[in-house]
């Protein structure tokens, strides 16, 4: 049997190394590339990302990756987004002015307010461990979160959060200060997380294992 061809997109922003390491830990070798030919021939793709939304879109445009990524996602092959790689799937972001995203999931990326409802100071970015909340019960069973317990801690680093128009794509929620927001999405072949599973110790590695196992089964 030929091993599936799993690609990590390197568009000069992000934590490629740790994502690749998490896959390797789970016995899966990956290819790192920004060549659109590799995107076309991939069996599964991971889009990582740390940094600014506008820069990320500009880099992808420069590398001519936007249409190949959209085509890949429309082909229904497994696609995983991490952190900024999740946010880029949305319609637009208000980060440093307005920027158009890939518009695969309808919705906006908004900034955390710096004060809460009781005038409490909110530290932005959120940096640290926070809980994944499963408020729909059944949905996790058929997702890479299948083996993950409700209220598991994951590592987050972000100033912006996703607001999907369609609530049904929300896989988990997380509460930062008094803001409850979408911390992962599941939509057909797309699985994406605001947190960094590759930086979330054993529990995070299990999420990669689940996602990768599902690909190997196909």
């Amino acid at each position: 049997m030929q091993l599936p061809n799993i690609l990590i997109i390197d568009y000069n922003l992000g934590n490629i190394f740790s994502v690749q390491n998490a896959c390797k830990y789970n016995g899966t070798n990956t290819i790192v590339s920004n060549d659109k030919k590799d995107i076309e021939s991939a069996d599964a793709i991971i889009l990582p990302g740390v940094g600014a939304f506008g820069d990320a879109m500009a880099n992808m445009r420069k590398l001519d990756l936007i249409e190949p990524i959209k085509d890949f996602i429309h082909s229904k092959k497994p696609f995983m987004g991490v952190c900024l790689g999740m946010q880029l799937l949305f319609t637009e972001s208000e980060e440093f002015g307005n920027h158009k995203g890939l518009d695969i999931i309808k919705g906006q990326i908004k900034k955390f307010p710096t004060s809460g409802s009781s005038n409490n100071k909110i530290k932005v970015p959120q940096v640290g461990w926070n809980k994944l909340i499963n408020d729909k019960n059944t949905q996790w069973m058929n997702s890479p979160l299948s083996s993950i317990n409700n209220d598991s801690f994951m590592y987050f680093v972000h100033s912006y959060f996703a607001c999907p128009e369609d609530e049904s794509v929300v896989l988990s929620k997380t509460v930062y200060e008094d803001i409850s927001y979408c911390s992962s999405v599941l939509k057909e072949n797309i699985f994406a997380t605001q947190f960094h599973p590759e930086k979330s110790a054993e529990t995070g590695l299990n999420i990669y294992a689940n996602w990768l196992n599902n690909i190997h089964k196909k």
Binding site: N21, S200, G204
Partner: peptide
């Protein structure tokens, strides 16, 4: 270190 440590 980073090879087998999966925290920041």
């Amino acid at each position: 270190t980073a090879k087998d440590i999966f925290i920041p």
